[in-house]
Amino acid sequence: MISSLLACSPVSSAQSSFVVPAPFSDEKPASTGRSETLLLAGGCFWGVQGVFQHVRGVSDAVSGYAGGNRDTAHYDKVGSGRTGHAETVQITYDPSQVSYGKLLQIFFSVAHDPTELNRQGPDTGTQYRSAIFPMNEMQRKIAQDYVDQLNQGKTFHHPVVTTIETFKGFYPAENYHQNFLTLHPDHGYIVVNDLPKVEALKRLFPAMYNTEPVLVRLASAK
């Protein structure tokens, strides 16, 4: 256990999850095995990473920081909420197995609550904001159209506050944050907040669920 290195604080109940409508627009199906990348921020990266490590077609999911500069991409600085960074997960995927739109659908359905502004549950600050960092214009348009679609359809009881932000770089988090859900399944925060998200993925997207998570090779992380 890493009780002295908590990125987040436990809450008494987990967020309920449901399948939101799929995006009206998506990337074209791919016939090759080339890899693509997307960056998603949805509160504490432990849970977001843990969910996408179990998604079919995902080959890597790395916890890290995006939105700020390289010199402030450290947990002790990001935690101040003044660096511009958000706790973010960089997801590498095979578009012949899973599309960008499907990954966004999972993000909005089970990985976090997109209606909470600059927070997730008990975790407050801009570093816990809901954000998407598109890697190209196609991703930007699909993401923005999807946020608009969910809001216009009143999918949630409150407006989606997810921001579509300019990609400035991604910086992997410290080693002790990587694979945290897998390595510490009995941790209080994980039990209350994040294991229910993985269970929701399994229940709501059974065709997309991988029993064995893809793990970050720690030698390549800080």
Rank of each mutant, 00 (worst) to 15 (best):
P29D: 14
P29E: 15
A30L: 13
S31N: 15
G33F: 11
R34G: 07
S35Q: 11
S35R: 15
E36K: 14
E36S: 08
T37Q: 00
T37V: 08
L38I: 04
L39N: 00
L39V: 06
L39Q: 05
L40D: 00
A41V: 08
C44S: 07
F45Q: 04
F45D: 03
V48H: 01
G50P: 08
R56C: 04
R56E: 07
A61G: 04
A61S: 04
V62P: 07
S63H: 07
S63E: 00
Y65Q: 00
G67H: 00
R70D: 07
D71P: 06
D71S: 14
T72K: 13
T72H: 12
A73R: 13
A73M: 14
Y75G: 12
V78W: 13
S80K: 14
G81T: 10
R82F: 11
R82N: 12
T83C: 13
G84P: 10
H85L: 06
A86N: 01
E87Q: 13
Q90T: 02
I91R: 02
Y93V: 03
D94M: 09
P95F: 14
Q97K: 12
Q97T: 12
V98R: 03
V98W: 09
V98A: 12
Y100M: 13
Y100V: 07
K102N: 09
K102Y: 04
K102I: 04
L103H: 06
L103I: 03
Q105Y: 06
I106Q: 00
I106F: 03
S109I: 05
S109D: 11
V110A: 08
A111Y: 05
H112Y: 08
T115M: 07
E116D: 04
E116Q: 09
R119G: 06
Q120A: 10
G121K: 11
P122M: 12
P122K: 10
P122E: 11
T124I: 14
R129A: 03
S130N: 07
S130Q: 05
P134K: 02
M135Q: 05
E137F: 11
Q139W: 03
R140N: 10
K141L: 09
A143D: 09
Q144H: 04
Q144I: 03
D145E: 14
D145Q: 13
D145F: 06
L150Y: 10
N151Y: 05
Q152Y: 14
Q152K: 15
K154L: 15
T155G: 10
H157E: 13
H158Y: 03
